[in-house]
Amino acid sequence: MDVSVLGQFPTRRMRRLRSSPVLRRMVAETILLPDHLIWPLFVRPGRKERRPVASMPGVCQLSVDEAVRETARAVEAGVPAVLLFGIPERKDEKASGAWSRNGIVQQAIRALKREYPNLWVITDVCLCEYMSHGHCGVVEHRRNTTRIANDPTLALLARTAVSHAEAGADMVAPSDMMDGRVAAIRAALDRAGFEDLPILSYAAKYASAFYGPFREAAESAPRFGDRRSYQMDPANAREAIREVALDIAEGADLVMVKPALAYLDILHQVKTTFGLPTAAYAVSAEYSMIKAAAAQGWIDERAVTLEALLAMRRAGADLIITYAAPDVARWLHQR
């Protein structure tokens, strides 16, 4: 843009368009709406179970009946979608709870779709919560070394995605970061007759320190090592573009950047490079830091949360996964 044509002070006064709340809303370049929000839920076995997550104020592990009851709050506020994570009754080295027909996520899908048929139910497709060792893939022991085996994991991920589709999921979201998993899931869904079911890929998922509270909520901390051999190095940006390109080529319909706030540059690059519907995950530590500072009276929780989410939208996010979704939707209606 040639700024010389815009004029100079006093002809051009930028404050004119900031003079009232009505005018500021009318000329806003970026808009945050309840329709942009996805609410993560942690479901566990039992009835009338509500187990608070100490590191995430306001977040609980919920039995299916409580998850259905709690979702009413989000639906009434206008949140259109949930993202399900499961905590199984038992864990093993085959992640059998992830793909069991009566697994905890499968139960939750059926219950939520029965109660709220218009709610968009997305499922996290990963194995870490269901593996006894806490990693996202099959563990192999070779020559005194232990590794997460990529290719043997793909079949389990595909089986899990199909079981979610059979239970009634509207979308699956693979978060494991195994190479080739989108192609494996797409092929399995198509063979099972779910060719119209979209895939939201955790395409650029970093090995981030911002996931700490989530490990408690999902009971998914690895028993040994870490996830740096399969999740992305926080130092790398160009690699994220390659990761996203591969997932799109394999059949991803939407892509995600995780975490969000510390990776707004990645989010912007992904959106501008590919133009595909793009999600940002406002992860557990982002949520918990705001909650902790607000509890001390240091910040305005509502104002900071809305500003952070607006920044994600401004960077290119079409969808935002946030633990604050019901509150955010209610705040937006009150404006």
Results as ranks from 00 to 15, higher is better:
113 K>N: 10
275 G>Q: 00
162 V>L: 07
18 R>F: 13
261 L>H: 13
186 R>E: 02
45 P>Y: 06
13 R>F: 06
290 I>Y: 09
133 H>Y: 02
163 S>T: 11
2 D>C: 05
97 G>R: 07
304 V>Q: 10
211 Y>F: 06
78 G>E: 00
203 A>Y: 05
81 A>H: 13
192 A>I: 02
233 D>V: 01
204 A>Q: 04
83 L>S: 09
226 D>N: 12
207 A>S: 11
238 R>N: 11
258 K>M: 04
206 Y>S: 00
100 S>I: 00
265 D>A: 01
287 Y>R: 07
59 V>N: 08
274 F>T: 03
90 R>I: 06
198 P>I: 05
114 R>T: 13
151 D>M: 11
15 R>T: 13
84 L>W: 10
278 T>G: 02
51 R>G: 06
182 V>E: 05
183 A>N: 05
66 E>G: 05
244 V>L: 08
109 I>W: 12
142 R>M: 12
333 H>V: 06
202 Y>P: 03
91 K>H: 01
9 F>D: 09
223 R>I: 03
184 A>H: 03
125 V>L: 11
326 P>V: 03
92 D>V: 06
296 Q>I: 01
192 A>G: 03
245 A>L: 09
38 I>A: 01
7 G>L: 06
165 A>P: 03
129 E>W: 01
248 I>C: 02
226 D>K: 03
225 G>W: 00
295 A>D: 14
128 C>L: 04
151 D>C: 08
78 G>I: 00
56 M>G: 11
222 P>G: 01
239 E>N: 00
174 P>R: 05
138 V>C: 09
87 I>E: 07
44 R>A: 14
268 H>F: 02
115 E>G: 08
118 N>K: 15
310 L>I: 08
52 P>E: 15
18 R>C: 12
274 F>Y: 09
122 I>V: 15
194 F>M: 05
67 A>W: 11
289 M>N: 12
123 T>L: 08
134 G>C: 01
309 L>F: 07
135 H>Y: 03
76 E>Y: 04
292 A>E: 13
145 T>G: 01
257 V>L: 09
172 V>P: 05
86 G>A: 08
269 Q>I: 09
14 M>T: 13
52 P>I: 08
196 D>I: 05
232 M>I: 02
36 H>L: 00
282 A>K: 11
106 Q>A: 13
260 A>H: 06
175 S>P: 03
178 M>N: 02
162 V>T: 07
53 V>H: 11
108 A>S: 09
9 F>V: 12
301 E>W: 06
56 M>T: 09
152 P>M: 02
316 G>V: 01
26 M>S: 14
288 S>V: 09
96 S>I: 04
41 L>C: 07
55 S>Q: 14
206 Y>L: 07
139 V>N: 04
308 A>Q: 13
211 Y>P: 00
118 N>D: 15
141 H>Q: 13
250 E>C: 01
151 D>E: 15
318 D>S: 03
7 G>E: 09
205 K>I: 02
